[in-house]
Amino acid sequence: MPRVSEAHLAARRQQILDAAARCFVRNGFHQTSMQDVIKEAGLSVGAFYRYFKSKNELITAIATEKISAVTGVLDQLLEQEPMPPIVTVIERILEIVDVSVDEDGPVRIAVQVWGEAVHDPEVGLLVAEIYGRVRERAVRMAERARAAGELPPDADPAGVGAAFFGLVQGYILQRILLGTVDRQLYMNGIRALLA
């Protein structure tokens, strides 16, 4: 039997993740069965279960993939010398949110994952680990901003990182729950708070 290439395996796995994301956005986690995802992906049951054994494995893979985009941007900004001001960093993250908030976008899945984390300890651990990485980067940014004089010398980087993270999550929730939130208006509010 011919050996399947790594590229083929990766493409098939991505096909399943994309199908699961569409199903989760359309119907929610609880109303989506594994059979729904298998049908959406156009695969046999055996082919599907070669890649994922449970819905939680799908949720884990999707959440990890989507948050990697945000951590990648934060890593790039952390590597810059000098690092952009924190307000610029927040605005860049909110731009990503705006691009990702459409009907099929990953931001809608993120909100579902947050809700699932309240009821499912396994998902809760996943969310804490994944979003902990984002908050850790926000703390590092606050440390650099304090060292550069952008923040007061007595500013607590852990507190600033937590607030940074909360501002982004707050924007996401407002975009999902209220429909439209003007990013510039939101950023004006952040600038006023930081002034």
Rank of each mutant, 00 (worst) to 15 (best):
R146H: 03
K66C: 03
D104E: 15
E65F: 02
S54H: 10
L74V: 08
G166P: 01
R183N: 05
G124C: 09
K55D: 03
L78D: 03
I190C: 09
G46N: 13
Y49P: 01
K66Q: 11
V4H: 03
V70I: 14
A155Q: 12
A19F: 09
L78Y: 06
T32Y: 10
K53H: 12
A61W: 04
A195G: 15
P82L: 01
Y186T: 00
S33Y: 09
A69T: 13
R146L: 01
Q31H: 14
V70R: 11
V45C: 02
W114F: 14
V134K: 14
N188R: 13
Q35R: 14
A145R: 06
S100V: 02
R22Q: 07
I62L: 14
R135N: 13
F29D: 02
G179E: 08
P82Y: 02
L43W: 05
L167N: 00
D154A: 07
R12S: 08
A11D: 15
M141E: 01
I176S: 05
G149K: 01
I67D: 04
F165H: 11
G105M: 07
T60N: 07
F48K: 00
D75I: 09
T32R: 08
L17M: 15
P106Y: 10
E129R: 15
S44N: 05
N188M: 10
L94F: 08
D36S: 12
A63T: 00
R50F: 14
D182V: 04
L151S: 01
E91V: 11
A117P: 04
T32I: 13
G124R: 13
Q169D: 06
P157T: 09
L74D: 03
V139N: 05
Q112H: 13
V45P: 02
A47W: 03
L78G: 08
Q112P: 07
D36N: 15
R144G: 11
Q15R: 15
G189F: 09
I16R: 00
V73E: 10
E65P: 00
A110Y: 10
F29Q: 07
L77T: 08
V25S: 04
N27E: 07
T64Y: 01
K66G: 03
Q112S: 07
R13Q: 13
P121W: 12
L185K: 06
P106F: 09
L151K: 01
G72D: 02
L77D: 06
N27M: 05
V99A: 15
L193H: 11
I172V: 15
L178V: 12
V89T: 09
F52I: 00
G28F: 03
D98C: 13
G105L: 10
